[in-house]
């Protein structure tokens, strides 16, 4: 084995995640979660549901996120979910999910495709009405949707009353972070 250790960088390009408090909002770069997509193969819906249930892996309905340990999940499309798991134990999430689902589903590692920023604060609806067309006032925690923030396609995961994750494409991490900071400053 080559005598070599490659040091990871966060999506914002640093050794450690960023954290920024602006007014009543706390913005955090989150890198402790592995992501893998899970899509049912033809005729395997029941098999996937059985295996997921046996593993305690939630398969939420449209526009939903469901927590769980070690696996949480949000809905991507018909018969398709993004699975979340702790990075420390599931860095190779593809291998873990393949072990659970075998050939009943198509599984793709997605961890480094995305940058995740968690925003904590009391006035999240006011913040997000500046950022995207999603009106949180009519929704509740557990809601997960795809939207656009400053031209960037993102997932919004409303995890608990005062906390939302914005998951956007990793290459646009800096632009997305800037958009979040700018909107937060406008309300500070």
């Amino acid at each position: 084995m080559a005598d070599l250790t490659l040091a990871p960088r966060t999506p914002l390009g640093h050794a450690l995640p960023e954290q920024h408090n602006i007014g009543g909002f706390a913005l955090t770069e989150v890198v402790d979660t592995a992501l893998g997509s899970l899509t049912v193969r033809a005729g395997q819906s029941a098999a996937v549901a059985d295996r997921a249930a046996a593993a305690g892996l939630p398969l939420p309905g449209p526009a939903c996120w469901l927590p769980g340990a070690p696996y949480a999940a949000f809905w991507l499309a018909q018969d398709s979910w993004m699975i979340e798991a702790p990075f420390a134990s599931h860095e190779d999430i593809h291998r873990h999910l393949r072990g659970l689902f075998g050939d009943t589903a198509s599984i793709t590692e997605q961890t480094d495709g995305w940058a995740r920023f968690d925003i904590r604060g009391e006035h999240l609806p006011a913040l997000f009405e500046r950022l995207c067309p999603v009106d949180l006032r009519g929704l509740a925690p557990g809601h997960a949707t795809r939207t656009v923030v400053e031209h960037i396609g993102c997932y919004l995961i409303w995890r608990e009353p005062g906390r939302i994750s914005v998951i956007g494409p990793r290459s646009s991490a800096a632009a997305l972070w800037h958009a979040l900071e700018t909107a937060a400053r406008a309300l500070a």
């Binding site: 997509s37 899509t39 193969r41 033809a42 005729g43 398709s80 198509s106 793709t108 590692e109 997605q110 961890t111 480094d112 495709g113 995305w114 494409p169 990793r170 290459s171």
Partner: peptide, 15 residues
């Protein structure tokens, strides 16, 4: 629609 095929982008996931 009858083909068993699944697609997802991994452009950003790999350097």
């Amino acid at each position: 629609p009858d083909m068993d095929v699944q697609l997802i982008s991994t452009t950003e996931a790999w350097a």
